[in-house]
Design a binder for these strands. Structure first.
Lengths: 350, 350
DNA sequence: ATCGCAGGCCAAAGCGCTTTGGATATCGAA
DNA sequence: TTCGATATCCAAAGCGCTTTGGCCTGCGAT
């Protein structure tokens, strides 16, 4: 059932039917009602390719998810980010064009999406420290919003980000206030911009009290449970074991907790954990008080907001760079407590 | 840069340029070379909407991800499934149209994708016990592949599934062989078809040895860490505590382990865990031997295979229902061992 | 010299929609 | 009665591509 069929069926021109369906005023209410009814009855839905070709708008946004080429990992935060994005988009009649891009192909992916007219805008995920994508997207003239920010990028661009530096500064201060001074940071991959900012916040907090962490107490890796476990185990067994650990994700915190408990130590008493919590639906930090003391910022909310912004940029191309900084709140859980003044934990089991 | 520009620039007709680019034989090799070179030089990429309108093929497949309406949860397995799917698709020039659909809207989502010509086929995720989607998709005439199977569906349809029943039968037998008889099952949501099959395999295994589990030892919930923790804690504290636990995901297994260790018990000695492992990149079951004894089947591989099948159905619409059953392998980890003959664990700490 | 045929190219007709630029009818005001 | 608004509707021109159905040209066969 296409427009031609429908209009001849109604004894009207395609123009009139199209206008009736799209809410234009040049059509009588009686006719509009008749058209809408017929359209519903026959399940007519305009072909989006044809419509898109005629209007020049794709009614879709691109979500380019980088597949870490070294690790071939797809971060599960995308599932929640997309859930947020999807809500906003479907409410406005947009679709999501998903592209997985691994490293080299990524430039081609953007160019292709733009040139083939598949999308009206894109979301840039997982920005790196000096990300080349900004310049390329600007050159392409494709509206975009970065989920995260890019250190070393001078030009203005639209982004939504959590205040990673401040969040980790807060988390660090929290631990320092509890008397901890040997604090470790289990962070995301080194080239990720967010990891850089988190480390920054951590170091600033330490420096403000005249402290400086051991180099081996700052580790970067994909944020998996076994990274948390392995890194924590190693640190607890070495000299100058940390009394508190900052982790970049709940999954890593799970691993840290396992390592601590495997040593016969108690989380929140012998070793404290403060984690960042993206509020992923399948990794809830539940309990009252919650299991982990955490800096909390919903990635799903970020997805909603990011798309709100992108749609705004698409609707009004000139409306300048939009920027949203989300604040993470520190929630006190059971995983952090005052430092114990006793023998280093490393020897607790020896 | 569109076809018209490119062809007038080359002094050729649009027909010839189009044919040259698409590999038709009616164009001399010399001309073809000239065209390809010019296209590359000017970064020409055919507008996919126009092409799609002309050919009738969308060159995109739909991935409809159900957002559990009760729980608003997006299962992280989709991230990995999509990674597999993306590999296959991008190699063949297809794009992914992602739709999040929550319950009621889902029918509309499929209808809309089909009617608007946005996709050439779809993947159906998370099938329920008696899923209405099969009938609807068949009526729509849209090629589709189900990721999972549908009990109570008589008509033939294309699917790819892991042999859930056999996997859990294997896992159960493994535990039974180790002498366990009080085995619990922490399963996914009750209306999910896979959960049903897993329970089946479990019950079959038990019945084969004349055993039948306690009703409260079979639990259904979203597969989160805290479900594993809470359920395990409760069971260990009650009468007739299980000596072994079967979990439906690594995340749930994490929770079960935490509960066991919190009771001062040792996983693999006091209480065994066998989990299903979807081999999610961010939830690796690492170690040698691995941390968890598990039935292993890569969901990423399933994604690849599912799209291979879907593309086949799209290319040759009549090629009949395609069905792939994947076998999960049982890998022995450190989380399962022979049953201890001693006082019930419930009292271990009292 | 003529014919047939293949190779190489092109004009134009779609694909299904939106949108421009009228056309026609109606109606109150002059 | 005549005239401009208004309100309704319509024919046709795109959007950028593919594809059908030719049109030439040259060449070997008749």
């Amino acid at each position: 059932m296409n427009l031609k069929d429908l209009s001849s069926l109604l004894g009207l021109s395609q123009t009139t039917v199209s206008r009736a369906l799209n809410g234009y005023p040049e059509v009588s209410e009686a006719t509009r009602a008749r058209v809408l009814e017929a359209a519903a009855a026959h399940g007519y839905r305009p072909d989006s390719r044809a419509r898109s070709l005629a209007t020049g708008r794709a009614m879709a946004v691109g979500l380019v998810v980088p597949v870490n080429s070294r690790h071939e990992r797809v971060n599960p935060i995308f599932a929640d980010f997309i859930a947020g994005a999807g809500d906003v988009l479907s409410a406005r009649g947009y679709d999501i064009m998903l592209s997985l891009a691994s490293g080299e192909d990524e430039a081609e992916t953007y160019r292709s999406l733009a040139a083939r007219g598949r999308v009206d805008g894109v979301i840039v995920q997982a920005p790196l420290i000096r990300d080349w994508r900004i310049k390329m997207l600007r050159d392409l003239g494709l509206p975009f919003v970065v989920h995260g920010r890019i250190s070393g990028e001078d030009a203005a661009y639209s982004w939504i980000d959590m205040d990673n530096r401040r969040a980790f500064r807060k988390a660090t201060d929290h631990l320092l206030d509890l008397g901890h001074s040997r604090i470790a940071l289990l962070n995301g991959l080194r080239d990720m911009d967010f990891a850089h900012r988190r480390e920054d916040g951590f170091l600033q907090g330490m420096a403000a009290r005249g402290l400086s962490p051991l180099a081996r107490h700052i580790q970067n890796a994909p944020m998996t449970e076994d990274f948390g476990y392995a890194a924590t185990t190693a640190m607890l067994e070495a000299e100058d074991a940390p009394t508190a650990i900052l982790t970049a994700s709940v999954l890593v915190a799970f691993g840290a907790r396992r390592a601590i408990e495997a040593k016969g130590l108690k989380v929140g008493r012998d070793v404290s954990i403060v984690t960042h919590d993206d509020v992923l639906t399948y990794l809830p930090n539940t309990g009252d008080p919650p299991m982990f003391t955490a800096t909390r910022s919903s990635v799903r909310r970020a997805g909603e907001q990011a798309l709100e912004m992108l749609l705004q940029l698409i609707d009004a191309p000139g409306c300048g760079p939009l920027q949203t900084l989300m604040e993470a709140e520190l929630v006190q859980g059971t995983s952090s407590g005052p430092v114990l003044n006793k023998e280093p934990h490393a020897h607790a089991e020896t």
